[in-house]
């Protein structure tokens, strides 16, 4: 790599020294650049680009790895006809709706408070961000213990309010039905909502990811020109008006970025669910499959049932959904790179 580099640049010094400084700005093809990008393209080509086509090809096969047989669209038809697929999709959407808005609202609130030139801001930021660094499995062990049906803290906390103990991570019943039963209101079956087990995992996930939103919102708040606040304050604006008419609109790009990134990540939810299921001694996706998201569903098809083609078909369907969202993000990232 070095030899090519040297031989090509050898003529450059004289040129630069002899001619006007603008000579270096004249476009001149530096062929060794291809050697610079080769290692990256090799890895990305083999492990990111090639697999896309191969994934689609595998999704048209039946049988285990290395014993593939072409079956056409069979895997897709099977997936779309499987009730498990639709319930996994529903679970994924529940998970997304339950975690993303909650994390963003809390994240923005905390970031806004931290931004008020508060003393000890650095310490608060360090604390709020800490769960994000800690491994999901280790923190899931603790949270599963908090949600333990017999001795967990969550039930002790409920007892303070006179609410009976719950089964939490092993409870497959929908959370709205549980609330309805508690209030002796009958809830129709379509409105039962996510299982209490999934809600427990969502609480854990919000706790873990919150710090990310806080830190990004803080960075976004830092980009807002402070003179705007001062000018508005001189005009007699109240704190709420400052927040509503300056912070919210000017923070929109940051909010949008967090929203899209969070949506994509929650559609791919796996780690939190895997770790919590395991910590609560449940089968993957349990109880009764109520925490089985699309990622978990795909993983089970591959890992537990050795159905690579079926797993690939599920992955393609999941990817199509994520693709739509990523396109939005890609546009945003492109715009950022032009500015940057």
């Amino acid at each position: 790599m070095t030899t090519q580099d040297e031989s090509h640049s050898a003529s450059l010094p004289q040129q630069a020294a002899g001619a006007a400084p603008t000579a270096t700005k004249r476009p001149r093809v530096q062929w060794f650049a291809y050697l610079y990008i080769l290692p990256a393209f090799l890895v990305i080509g083999v492990f990111h680009i090639l697999p896309v086509g191969y994934a689609i090809w595998i999704s048209l096969q039946s049988g285990a790895v290395r014993r593939f047989q072409f079956t056409g669209l069979d895997n897709y038809i099977r997936a779309l006809n499987a009730p498990e697929f639709w319930s996994a999709l529903q679970t994924t959407l529940f998970y997304t709706l339950g975690t993303v808005p909650m994390t963003m609202v809390l994240g923005l609130g905390i970031a806004y408070l931290l931004f008020q030139k508060i003393r000890g801001r650095g310490i608060y930021r360090t604390i709020y961000f800490m769960p994000y660094i800690i491994s999901t499995v280790a923190s899931a062990i603790v949270w599963a213990w908090v949600f333990d049906p017999r001795n967990g803290l969550a039930n002790h906390a409920l007892a303070l309010f006179g609410i009976p103990a719950q089964q939490w991570l092993i409870e497959p019943t929908g959370v709205f039905k549980l609330i309805g039963d508690g209030l002796q209101v009958s809830v129709p079956s379509w409105a039962e909502g996510p299982s209490l087990a999934l809600v427990g995992i969502m609480i854990f996930a919000v706790w873990q990811v919150l710090g990310f939103d806080v830190v990004i919102f803080l960075a976004g708040l830092g980009n807002i020109n402070s003179e705007l606040y001062e000018a508005a304050r001189i005009d007699g604006a109240t704190g709420w008006q400052l927040f509503r008419y300056i912070t919210i609109p000017l923070l929109a790009p940051t909010t949008f970025f967090i929203l899209v990134v969070s949506l994509i990540f929650s559609l791919q939810a796996f780690n939190h669910i895997y770790a919590m299921n395991r910590s609560a001694a449940q089968q993957l996706g349990g109880p009764l499959g109520t925490t089985r998201t699309l990622s978990i569903f795909m993983f089970q098809a591959l890992y537990e049932q050795n159905r690579a083609g079926y797993a690939s078909a599920i992955a393609v369907l999941l990817s199509l959904m994520i693709l739509g969202l990523t396109l939005v993000q890609f546009r945003f990232l492109g715009r950022r790179s032009e500015n940057g």
């Binding site: 680009i49 994934a55 790895v65 690579a308 992955a315 994520i322 990523t326």
Partner: peptide
Amino acid sequence: TLMIPFELTLVPNFV
């Protein structure tokens, strides 16, 4: 390639 979700490349890479 940033648009390619991890799940899609999982099975091929495993193979």
